[in-house]
Nucleic acid binder design. Structure first.
Lengths: 112, 112
DNA sequence: CAAACATATGAATATGTATTCAAGTGTGTA
DNA sequence: TACACACTTGAATACATATTCATATGTTTG
């Protein structure tokens, strides 16, 4: 009876958070969307600039940005005709960097 | 001409990593799989134990574990009849914690 | 070896979703 | 106001994938 915060038997992450977390991860689970996120990680960038840079149609970029905005991963700011998008906060960058660290982790020599 | 490491115009994450990262993120982008990952974050746990705990069919858990293993997010270890799975390294936990921090970040008061 | 248990796998299905195309909305400007 | 530009939105399509059910593989023990 020493545990007060645990919801069930395991983990520090409460079960109720899981769906939210999964939604966010699946936002990053698409290459186009992940590249879009990377494009607006550091500074605000316009939709057309993203589209040009990534060689994606403007429509597609806009569709993805709408999802990313709804998931609160990016923020929109209008400047004249253009709309600039930027990552919502620092954590997004941390998540990506941690995952990159995972990728470059030495893999033990496995059988298959 | 001062940049030597940047692949294109932005980001510290090289473009070649993007597909790998996206694959990993989409592994975490499914609620069942994310819960499975959480189940074996801290210590090895058997397939049937995971299935019981999460109330998922054993078949489904096994299918997901196969994907997670292929993505090198978990490791399998046989102990008699049972197979125990455990998260591959610490980074997975970091990623999840960072994302949880993102969720609990104060959202500026937006219009919609 | 046979039976019982634990896990894995394959096929089938149903549901989700990334992308495209065409048309719509909003904004500056001639 | 009319036009061009930047972005958004909706519908259609093609493709991926989560889940289930049935069956197979592997492992211990009688």
């Amino acid at each position: 009876m020493t545990n007060k915060t645990k919801t069930s038997t395991n983990s520090l992450i409460s079960e109720e958070l899981v769906p939210q977390l999964a939604d966010l991860f699946s936002m990053m689970g698409d290459t186009s969307r992940l590249r879009i996120i990377l494009s607006c990680l550091h500074e605000p960038i316009s939709v057309s600039h993203i589209a040009d840079q990534l060689e994606l149609s403007q429509s597609l970029v806009s569709h993805h940005l709408r999802l990313l905005k709804a998931a609160r991963m990016v923020r929109a700011e209008r400047r004249g005709k253009q709309v600039f998008y930027v990552a919502a906060d620092q954590h997004v960058q941390c998540v990506i960097e941690d995952m990159a660290a995972h990728v470059s982790e030495p893999h033990g020599v496995e059988d298959e």
